[in-house]
Amino acid sequence: TELRLDINGREIKVDGADKETLKELLKLAEKNNDEKAIRIIRHLLER
């Protein structure tokens, strides 16, 4: 399955993203107070 998050109005594919990319996405999600995106990205970073 493909995991996509809508961050800042942009749909971004997050599964398969490297750790650096995920960290950047996490910063974006935190800036937007997007709890769902934050939770998902943190979960991916823990893998």
Results as ranks from 00 to 15, higher is better:
residue 26 L to F: 06
residue 8 N to F: 06
residue 20 E to M: 06
residue 28 L to P: 00
residue 6 D to L: 15
residue 43 H to V: 12
residue 41 I to A: 01
residue 30 E to I: 13
residue 20 E to I: 06
residue 29 A to K: 00
residue 5 L to C: 06
residue 33 N to R: 10
residue 20 E to Y: 11
residue 46 E to R: 15
residue 11 E to I: 12
residue 5 L to G: 04
residue 14 V to G: 02
residue 44 L to V: 07
residue 23 K to F: 10
residue 33 N to L: 08
residue 38 I to R: 05
residue 27 K to W: 11
residue 11 E to H: 07
residue 32 N to V: 14
residue 35 E to K: 08
residue 14 V to R: 01
residue 35 E to W: 14
residue 27 K to V: 09
residue 20 E to W: 11
residue 38 I to M: 13
residue 25 L to Q: 01
residue 31 K to W: 13
residue 10 R to S: 12
residue 17 A to N: 13
residue 10 R to C: 06
residue 34 D to V: 04
residue 38 I to E: 04
residue 43 H to K: 11
residue 7 I to Q: 02
residue 13 K to S: 12
residue 19 K to A: 07
residue 18 D to E: 04
residue 28 L to Q: 06
residue 43 H to A: 12
residue 20 E to D: 10
residue 39 R to Q: 10
residue 12 I to R: 01
residue 29 A to Q: 00
residue 24 E to N: 10
residue 23 K to M: 10
residue 12 I to L: 05
residue 11 E to S: 07
residue 39 R to N: 09
residue 28 L to M: 10
residue 36 K to T: 09
residue 40 I to A: 05
residue 27 K to Y: 13
residue 32 N to G: 14
residue 21 T to F: 10
residue 9 G to L: 03
residue 47 R to T: 12
residue 12 I to Q: 03
residue 15 D to F: 08
residue 26 L to H: 01
residue 24 E to A: 14
residue 33 N to K: 09
residue 10 R to N: 11
residue 41 I to F: 03
residue 6 D to R: 15
residue 17 A to E: 12
residue 45 L to S: 01
residue 47 R to Y: 14
residue 7 I to P: 01
residue 32 N to R: 04
residue 16 G to R: 12
residue 42 R to T: 09
residue 30 E to M: 14
residue 28 L to E: 08
residue 17 A to S: 12
residue 3 L to M: 06
residue 2 E to P: 05
residue 35 E to H: 12
residue 18 D to S: 07
residue 22 L to W: 02
residue 35 E to V: 13
residue 34 D to Q: 04
residue 23 K to H: 10
residue 13 K to C: 04
residue 15 D to H: 07
residue 40 I to E: 03
residue 45 L to K: 00
residue 9 G to E: 03
residue 4 R to V: 15
residue 34 D to I: 04
residue 12 I to M: 06
residue 18 D to L: 04
residue 43 H to R: 14
residue 40 I to G: 02
residue 38 I to L: 11
residue 38 I to A: 11
residue 12 I to D: 02
residue 3 L to I: 15
residue 39 R to A: 09
residue 14 V to E: 01
residue 5 L to Q: 03
residue 30 E to W: 13
residue 30 E to T: 10
residue 27 K to P: 02
residue 16 G to T: 14
residue 3 L to H: 14
residue 5 L to F: 08
residue 11 E to Q: 08
residue 23 K to D: 04
residue 47 R to L: 12
residue 11 E to K: 05
residue 34 D to M: 04
residue 21 T to Y: 09
residue 37 A to K: 01
residue 46 E to D: 10
residue 7 I to T: 02
residue 13 K to P: 06
residue 2 E to L: 10
residue 44 L to C: 04
residue 42 R to W: 08
residue 10 R to K: 14
residue 34 D to R: 01
residue 3 L to Y: 08
residue 29 A to H: 01
residue 31 K to V: 12
residue 26 L to I: 04
residue 34 D to F: 04
residue 28 L to G: 02
residue 44 L to N: 03
residue 10 R to Y: 13
residue 1 T to H: 12
residue 14 V to L: 07
residue 17 A to T: 12
residue 32 N to L: 14
residue 28 L to S: 04
residue 26 L to Q: 02
residue 3 L to C: 06
residue 28 L to A: 05
residue 41 I to L: 14
residue 19 K to E: 11
residue 23 K to A: 09
residue 10 R to G: 08
residue 41 I to P: 00
residue 46 E to K: 14
residue 14 V to C: 02
residue 33 N to I: 05
residue 42 R to Q: 07
residue 25 L to K: 00
residue 11 E to M: 06
residue 40 I to Q: 05
residue 34 D to S: 06
residue 2 E to W: 13
residue 24 E to C: 10
residue 14 V to W: 03
residue 24 E to G: 10
residue 16 G to E: 12
residue 20 E to S: 07
residue 25 L to A: 03
residue 30 E to S: 09
residue 36 K to D: 09
residue 40 I to N: 02
residue 40 I to W: 08
residue 15 D to C: 05
residue 42 R to D: 01
residue 1 T to K: 06
residue 5 L to D: 08
residue 19 K to R: 12
residue 29 A to L: 05
residue 15 D to P: 03
residue 43 H to C: 08
residue 22 L to C: 01
residue 18 D to Q: 03
residue 14 V to F: 06
residue 14 V to A: 04
residue 44 L to P: 00
residue 13 K to T: 13
residue 1 T to W: 14
residue 16 G to W: 12
residue 37 A to L: 07
residue 2 E to S: 09
residue 6 D to H: 15
residue 9 G to A: 01
residue 20 E to N: 07
residue 17 A to I: 06
residue 47 R to Q: 13
residue 11 E to V: 12
residue 15 D to M: 07
residue 9 G to C: 03
residue 14 V to S: 02
residue 34 D to W: 08
residue 38 I to Y: 11
residue 37 A to P: 01
residue 33 N to E: 07
residue 4 R to E: 14
residue 36 K to F: 12
residue 2 E to R: 05
residue 46 E to P: 03
residue 19 K to G: 06
residue 24 E to L: 14
residue 42 R to E: 04
residue 3 L to D: 13
residue 45 L to F: 04
residue 20 E to A: 09
residue 46 E to M: 15
residue 35 E to A: 11
residue 36 K to A: 11
residue 21 T to Q: 12
residue 16 G to P: 15
residue 38 I to N: 01
residue 14 V to Q: 01
residue 29 A to R: 00
residue 36 K to V: 10
residue 22 L to N: 00
residue 29 A to V: 07
residue 33 N to F: 09
residue 5 L to H: 02
residue 1 T to V: 07
residue 27 K to E: 08
residue 42 R to M: 10
residue 40 I to C: 07
residue 36 K to E: 10
residue 23 K to G: 06
residue 1 T to E: 14
residue 14 V to M: 04
residue 34 D to H: 04
residue 16 G to Q: 11
residue 19 K to L: 11
residue 29 A to E: 00
residue 19 K to W: 05
residue 3 L to F: 05
residue 2 E to F: 12
residue 5 L to K: 03
residue 31 K to D: 13
residue 45 L to W: 02
residue 19 K to V: 11
residue 29 A to C: 05
residue 24 E to I: 14
residue 26 L to A: 02
residue 28 L to I: 09
residue 47 R to V: 11
residue 7 I to E: 03
residue 15 D to V: 05
residue 17 A to P: 03
residue 6 D to M: 15
residue 9 G to V: 01
residue 24 E to Y: 15
residue 26 L to K: 02
residue 27 K to T: 07
residue 12 I to C: 03
residue 22 L to K: 00
residue 10 R to W: 13
residue 13 K to Q: 11
residue 36 K to S: 10
residue 20 E to L: 05
residue 20 E to K: 09
residue 32 N to C: 07
residue 24 E to S: 13
residue 35 E to S: 10
residue 5 L to V: 13
residue 1 T to D: 15
residue 13 K to F: 14
residue 22 L to T: 00
residue 46 E to H: 14
residue 5 L to A: 03
residue 22 L to M: 05
residue 10 R to E: 14
residue 30 E to F: 12
residue 23 K to T: 07
residue 7 I to M: 06
residue 13 K to N: 12
residue 13 K to R: 11
residue 33 N to A: 08
residue 9 G to S: 01
residue 34 D to L: 06
residue 1 T to C: 13
residue 47 R to W: 14
residue 15 D to N: 13
residue 3 L to G: 10
residue 8 N to P: 01
residue 25 L to Y: 09
residue 10 R to D: 10
residue 37 A to I: 06
residue 28 L to F: 08
residue 8 N to W: 04
residue 33 N to Q: 08
residue 11 E to C: 10
residue 39 R to I: 09
residue 42 R to S: 06
residue 21 T to P: 01
residue 16 G to I: 15
residue 31 K to P: 02
residue 44 L to F: 14
residue 12 I to A: 02
residue 21 T to K: 12
residue 36 K to R: 10
residue 1 T to R: 05
residue 6 D to W: 15
residue 42 R to Y: 07
residue 26 L to P: 00
residue 40 I to V: 09
residue 21 T to C: 07
residue 32 N to E: 13
residue 14 V to D: 02
residue 1 T to A: 09
residue 9 G to F: 03
residue 12 I to P: 01
residue 40 I to H: 03
residue 19 K to S: 08
residue 28 L to D: 05
residue 45 L to P: 00
residue 14 V to I: 08
residue 8 N to I: 03
residue 47 R to K: 08
residue 15 D to L: 08
residue 24 E to Q: 13
residue 47 R to C: 04
residue 19 K to T: 12
residue 15 D to T: 06
residue 10 R to F: 13
residue 3 L to K: 05
residue 18 D to V: 03
residue 7 I to W: 06
residue 28 L to V: 07
residue 47 R to D: 10
residue 41 I to H: 00
residue 35 E to G: 07
residue 44 L to E: 03
residue 43 H to E: 09
residue 37 A to N: 06
residue 4 R to P: 10
residue 7 I to S: 02
residue 39 R to F: 14
residue 28 L to K: 03
residue 27 K to M: 11
residue 33 N to P: 02
residue 7 I to D: 03
residue 22 L to F: 02
residue 16 G to Y: 11
residue 42 R to L: 12
residue 47 R to N: 10
residue 8 N to T: 03
residue 35 E to M: 12
residue 32 N to M: 13
residue 33 N to S: 08
residue 45 L to E: 00
residue 31 K to E: 10
residue 31 K to R: 11
residue 35 E to Y: 13
residue 3 L to T: 12
residue 21 T to G: 09
residue 43 H to G: 08
residue 20 E to V: 10
residue 42 R to G: 03
residue 27 K to D: 06
residue 22 L to R: 00
residue 7 I to G: 02
residue 41 I to G: 00
residue 44 L to R: 04
residue 47 R to P: 11
residue 45 L to Y: 02
residue 43 H to W: 15
residue 7 I to F: 12
residue 35 E to Q: 12
residue 18 D to P: 03
residue 18 D to N: 07
residue 39 R to K: 07
residue 8 N to C: 08
residue 47 R to H: 11
residue 16 G to N: 09
residue 41 I to W: 01
residue 26 L to G: 00
residue 23 K to P: 01
residue 1 T to P: 14
residue 11 E to W: 14
residue 5 L to E: 07
residue 47 R to G: 13
residue 35 E to C: 07
residue 34 D to A: 09
residue 2 E to I: 11
residue 29 A to N: 00
residue 32 N to Y: 15
residue 41 I to Y: 03
residue 42 R to N: 05
residue 31 K to S: 11
residue 45 L to Q: 02
residue 12 I to H: 13
residue 40 I to F: 13
residue 15 D to E: 06
residue 19 K to D: 08
residue 16 G to L: 13
residue 18 D to I: 03
residue 20 E to H: 08
residue 24 E to F: 15
residue 3 L to S: 08
residue 24 E to R: 15
residue 46 E to G: 14
residue 33 N to D: 06
residue 13 K to A: 11
residue 19 K to F: 07
residue 21 T to S: 10
residue 15 D to R: 05
residue 19 K to Y: 08
residue 39 R to T: 09
residue 19 K to P: 07
residue 41 I to K: 00
residue 23 K to I: 09
residue 31 K to N: 09
residue 10 R to I: 14
residue 8 N to Y: 04
residue 23 K to C: 05
residue 41 I to Q: 00
residue 2 E to Y: 10
residue 47 R to E: 10
residue 39 R to G: 06
residue 12 I to Y: 15
residue 9 G to Q: 02
residue 33 N to V: 05
residue 8 N to S: 05
residue 17 A to Y: 07
residue 2 E to G: 07
residue 11 E to D: 05
residue 2 E to V: 06
residue 10 R to A: 12
residue 31 K to C: 05
residue 47 R to S: 11
residue 30 E to N: 07
residue 18 D to A: 05
residue 21 T to L: 09
residue 22 L to E: 00
residue 4 R to I: 15
residue 45 L to C: 02
residue 29 A to T: 01
residue 30 E to D: 06
residue 4 R to M: 14
residue 14 V to N: 01
residue 32 N to S: 14
residue 10 R to H: 13
residue 21 T to N: 07
residue 17 A to D: 12
residue 16 G to D: 08
